[in-house]
Nucleic acid binder design. Sequence first.
DNA 1: AGCTGGTGTTCCGACTAGGAACATAAGGGA
DNA 2: TCCCTTATGTTCCTAGTCGGAACACCAGCT
Lengths: 212, 212
Amino acid sequence: MTDTGGVADPAGPPEDSLSGSDLRQAPEHDLPPTSYALLGLLSFGPELTGYELKQWADSTLRFYWVAPAMSQVYSELTRLDRLGLLESRDDRTGQRPARRYKISERGMAELRRWLSDTPIDFPVLKHPAALRLLLGHLVDIDVTRKMLGGYIAQLDERRAELQEVRDGLGSDATFRFPAEVAQWGLSYYDDESRTVREIVDRLSNPEPPDPA
Amino acid sequence: MTDTGGVADPAGPPEDSLSGSDLRQAPEHDLPPTSYALLGLLSFGPELTGYELKQWADSTLRFYWVAPAMSQVYSELTRLDRLGLLESRDDRTGQRPARRYKISERGMAELRRWLSDTPIDFPVLKHPAALRLLLGHLVDIDVTRKMLGGYIAQLDERRAELQEVRDGLGSDATFRFPAEVAQWGLSYYDDESRTVREIVDRLSNPEPPDPA
DNA sequence: AGCTGGTGTTCCGACTAGGAACATAAGGGA
DNA sequence: TCCCTTATGTTCCTAGTCGGAACACCAGCT
């Protein structure tokens, strides 16, 4: 087993000193999915700083993928660059010096390979509202009802944000797939909101005899 | 800020030696949600080994909460025990010696406090199928269609498993809340399956002019 | 001059994921 | 009988992830 490398190398100076043998090394195994998520954002073309990439992920990606932390965005960029999947340069044209990254040909190829070859994982979910409903026997019913009411309010808020994202994509074929994903999310929020309202109704009217 | 403690203490022998001052210490801050998830399972009453708790979590909890890894189950049990939220004993009655844990009064109280006082977080989602659909521009359309077909098949499978869980809960009022949560999950799988089928249809018939 | 807020990045500690490793028992087949 | 597989029960290690603190600099406002 060869060393696939730690992300940070605090001992070595970053400039010059082509010391490592792991420069431009192919990622023998799959990277974690979050790496492909960020690489995927960059596959749409822009040349971004870590800060800008984080903002973009926060505004769109987070609806179906956990928005990675700032620190993780930067360490991912460092790693992807080291693997040759990105190209980077120092940008001093703006008011602030910054490092800008864009996807490389290698990166595009690796992304295509991953999309074609890798079996799909089932979604991973952490659903606090469901967990709390499960534990309803421990608290007064009003606590649970109130909790679900708050969840519905959050759903409405998120739905409105996602609607804005979807509207911003227009009907241009360029953003056909992002638009499909946004639509998917909107359907999800609508269905979820309806389902939770039904649950709240059932909690209020304990046993409505089925009139069928 | 006082030390809220590492989970493992490899230096110290576990028996006797009341060395620490952090025994039976209240958790000043909230524990991570996964801790409350496991504590919540134990709030239904049983006295379990780490192994059994992991199996239970795998069979039911995983539908709306990431099933924690074996190693995490054990470290959580150790921590919750150290905090006085669990009671534990060595069990040698079975064929294999094992440590059994059940929830304490303190644990029940802390769980109730958390349910009542803590604001609810929005669900966290990692949705590989959505991420791949987003990147549809990179691959042939058939790759994306096939990917979504595989996802639908996984959905059907999961739905069948959850249906069994739900059937096992019956209509007894004891499991009213677990049954509601299971029903919630079933609705989610049904809605998601329908939505994804619609997406696949749209991918096949690119622009069906709206006949309205 | 100082305050606040946005840009840009790094570092650290805690939490989480996943598998390897270890140990023992039960059951089945050559 | 011996081996193999499966299940029980637990620990350890590595890498990945999260969240905040810290640092730095610039712009606009008071």
